[in-house]
Design a protein around this nucleic acid. Structure first.
Length: 376
RNA sequence: GUGGGUAUGGCGCAGUUGGCUAGCGCGCCAGAUUGUGGCUCUGGAGGCCGAGGGUUCGAGUCCCUCUAUCCACC
């Protein structure tokens, strides 16, 4: 159950009630694709850096260790020792990102495993079964995420198929939630809006899936190559046609600036690999823009990544030391950067929630963006 | 001391019977990365080819001397 606590313009401050605790929105979900946030980050770390929700991936966990193994181990929560909400992505994105290794048909998608090359079939039913085995808090619908440059003639039939897949997902999820040996019988299902950068297709699709009474609605297929302006335009056009009494999730986005823009347009949920992947590559976020700690200018910099930051890295360690660890390819260097970045994102979301509650989101956003564009 | 090998950007090497604007890997310096294959990709800086002399229209490539270094033998 989702409720909007207060609004500030189109920005919403809300709360999603789940069997694994309540999620305060807007929220940034921390991405742990294979039931682990890359960079040697533990559950204890996540508590320290204020993680509300973890995101894992259906396709990756199906390939390894196998969803049946996870079910046998008591489900994802018990397996990875995390009792707060988990959202599982459906594997739909892998249809897109592993393009070349797949064949899309009406019944579903034929993949070759990126781990051992074996053939895998996944359709809406399989994706729901896997996610039910994983017993995540929120399951995502199985969709196709077409490339940003796709023509309308490709997008329209693709979106129509995604709609048919969504109906199958919903039916299968209902069936699974009523089964005796299902671990999480209250597993939620979010539908996914597609339509490329065509507002008419987006809106039509949003209307159709809104009638299906799902637990939440995502906007997918953005931030895959189109410009920021196009992305914001599509968000702005689509959000009003998604149910306002349900959470809206912008999949895979994005930079801190992207998130501020999307919150302003009514988005509640986010996830992105940036803080973790960029962290592993030594790119760290600050209120004065992104730093690349590999840069030679940090060689003797005794300052923390960001002074005043309360993350585990900034509380004690210098940029120079972390740079050294990164150059030496020590895991600890990546770990510090990932922890800092996730803390930065989680903390920014906390600030956003406070700003909306106090009806000063616009001022907050402007000040934040000005900071990002200033030199540290 | 004798015989043989090797000397090319920070390191490791390619450079065909002499025609180069001297390449490559790593490293270095930067930049990309948006529902993650601890990747990958894209740029950039840096060498009078150990030193000196010779042959030639032309030498990193051939010849001579020297220096350094490695291996074997004494």
């Amino acid at each position: 159950m989702y409720k909007v606590i207060t609004t500030d313009g189109n920005a919403k401050r809300g709360e999603l009630v789940t069997p694994h605790g309540n999620i305060q929105t807007p929220v940034f979900m921390n991405v742990g694709t294979v039931a682990a946030i890359k960079g040697a980050v533990s559950t204890e770390d996540l508590q320290t850096i204020g993680t509300q929700v973890q995101l894992s991936n259906t396709y990756h966990l199906h390939v390894r260790p196998g969803d049946k193994i996870v079910k046998q181990m008591g489900g994802l929560h018990k397996f990875m020792v995390w009792d707060k909400p988990i959202l599982t992505d459906s594997g739909g994105f892998q249809v897109f990102s592993l393009a070349g290794l797949r064949k899309i048909k009406e019944e579903g998608v034929y993949f070759s495993s990126h781990v051992d090359g074996r053939k895998i079939f996944m359709g809406p039913e399989e994706s729901m079964q896997i996610q039910s085995n994983l017993a995540s808090t929120i399951a995502m619908a199985f969709d196709e995420c077409p490339p940003s440059k796709a023509e309308k003639s490709y997008i329209q039939p693709s979106v129509d198929r995604t709609t048919r897949w969504l109906e199958r997902c919903k039916n299968e999820m209902n069936r699974l939630n009523s089964m005796e040996d299902t671990i999480n019988k209250k597993q939620m299902l979010f539908g996914i809006n597609q339509g490329g950068i065509f507002e008419d297709i987006r809106i039509e699709h949003a209307k159709r899936i809104s009638e299906m009474d799902l637990d939440g609605y995502a906007i997918g297929g953005l931030a895959v190559g189109e410009s920021h302006d196009e992305m914001y335009r599509i968000i702005e056009a689509t959000v009003p046609y998604l149910p306002q009494n349900k959470p809206t999730y912008l999949m895979g986005v994005g930079t801190p600036a992207n998130i501020l823009e999307a919150v302003e347009r009514g988005v509640d949920f986010f996830d992105c690999v940036y803080p973790s992947r960029n962290g592993r590559h030594g790119h760290v976020y600050t209120n004065h823009g992104k730093l690349n700690l590999f840069n030679a200018k940090y060689e003797t910099d005794s300052e923390p990544i960001e002074s005043g930051c309360k993350c585990p890295a900034c509380s004690k360690y210098s940029r120079a030391y972390i740079r050294h660890l990164l150059k030496a390819k020590e895991m600890l260097g990546m770990r510090f950067c990932v922890l800092h970045n996730l803390y930065f994102y989680n903390n920014m979301m906390d600030e956003i929630r406070t700003a909306i509650s106090e009806h000063r989101f616009a001022e907050y956003k402007k000040a934040k963006l000005d900071g990002f564009n200033s030199e540290a």
